[in-house]
Simulated scan of single mutants.
Amino acid sequence: MDPLDRSDPKRIGDITLRGRLGFGGMGRVFYGVTDDHEAVAVKVIREDLVARAEVRARFARETDALRTIQGPHIAALVDASDEDEERPWLAVEFVRGLTLKEFVETSGPLSEADAAALGVVLAGALRDIHAVGLLHRDLKPANVLLGQDGPKVIDLGLVAFAEGPTDLTTTESTLGTPACMSPEQANTPKQVTSAADVYALGATLLFALTKHYPYDGGNIAAMLMNIISADTQPNLDGLSDSTRPLFVKMLAHDPAARPTVAQSDDRLKELCGRAPLKRLVEATYVERESDPEEVGPPPRPPRKDLSAVVRPGSVVAMLADRLRSVYSANAAF
């Protein structure tokens, strides 16, 4: 975590900001603590983009999605600004730990059992997103946090309705991360279905297992050309014979040839065996050196020093006088 800059706000809503967590193409993310002592990640639209209607619409869509989706493996919305606020913001629970991308790049690929266990968790998150008629559209290793309570999916900035075209993109623009983008999302982004999320799940797990993505290229344009070409097969090097058939299906060029999220989940459960989440957390949870300290309960108020007001000796004498008076009164009866 980096310290706040002089130009950064010190407080947003009921949240005190304590540092910078990162930034992206649309906004900046801060670490903050609510007045109820809950650690949160606060996303704010960049000042130079706040006046753009399409950026505000995308931000509002993410906020609405977070309000709608309920799931144990999706970072939950804690608070958000009003729609008409000058500079919109949203706050989600702060998940302490590395992203899947960071973990693999620093510690190496996951075992087959742990990658399958991760797949079960991510499939569950996608199922919760799809259950409310939405698509994630940007599932990737950098959007999976390996927290101490289990993996959680973050960044719903590209959510779209599962049925029908979305107004989030135009025919001239492609939003998403090319490395994990399905052929249809790269080619016709306004006409994607839940099969695009299945493809992204396969690409994310492929990276977790092999440290590479389905397609590569000298630049983004070359990568996209490989992705949309039906004649170019995905790179499945490093997969075992037991896992390869599932990835062939999940990364199929034709969306209709891919399994559903539920079918993928069933096969992943077979591959991971028993107690998948506990083993996965133990194998992957690593805290960043730059992560902020844990937020504890509010400090106890200091005890008042009464020594200057009442001396111990006077208290004892007062109690003795009361006992004598009570004893004398009782003795009279």
Results as ranks from 00 to 15, higher is better:
residue 3 P to Q: 11
residue 16 T to N: 09
residue 18 R to A: 12
residue 18 R to C: 10
residue 24 G to W: 01
residue 25 G to F: 04
residue 29 V to A: 07
residue 32 G to R: 01
residue 34 T to Q: 07
residue 34 T to W: 06
residue 35 D to S: 12
residue 45 I to N: 03
residue 49 L to R: 00
residue 54 E to C: 11
residue 57 A to E: 15
residue 58 R to K: 10
residue 61 R to D: 11
residue 67 R to C: 12
residue 73 H to G: 05
residue 85 E to L: 11
residue 92 V to N: 08
residue 92 V to A: 13
residue 97 G to I: 00
residue 98 L to N: 07
residue 100 L to T: 02
residue 103 F to P: 06
residue 106 T to P: 00
residue 109 P to D: 07
residue 114 D to G: 06
residue 116 A to C: 05
residue 119 G to D: 00
residue 124 G to T: 00
residue 125 A to S: 13
residue 130 H to V: 08
residue 144 V to C: 10
residue 146 L to I: 02
residue 153 V to F: 08
residue 153 V to W: 01
residue 156 L to E: 08
residue 158 L to D: 08
residue 162 A to I: 09
residue 167 D to R: 10
residue 178 P to A: 14
residue 178 P to D: 09
residue 196 A to F: 00
residue 196 A to M: 01
residue 202 G to I: 02
residue 205 L to H: 01
residue 209 L to M: 11
residue 209 L to R: 03
residue 214 P to I: 03
residue 214 P to V: 00
residue 219 N to A: 12
residue 222 A to E: 13
residue 224 L to T: 14
residue 228 I to Q: 12
residue 231 D to C: 06
residue 236 L to N: 08
residue 237 D to R: 14
residue 238 G to D: 04
residue 238 G to S: 07
residue 239 L to E: 10
residue 240 S to D: 08
residue 248 V to D: 13
residue 252 A to T: 04
residue 257 A to V: 03
residue 261 V to Q: 07
residue 265 D to M: 12
residue 265 D to Y: 08
residue 266 D to S: 12
residue 268 L to E: 01
residue 276 P to T: 02
residue 279 R to V: 03
residue 281 V to G: 06
residue 284 T to A: 09
residue 287 E to Y: 07
residue 291 D to E: 14
residue 291 D to C: 04
residue 292 P to G: 10
residue 296 G to S: 08
residue 304 K to D: 15
residue 305 D to L: 07
residue 312 P to F: 07
residue 312 P to Q: 05
residue 315 V to M: 13
residue 316 V to D: 10
residue 319 L to C: 10
residue 321 D to N: 10
residue 328 S to Y: 11
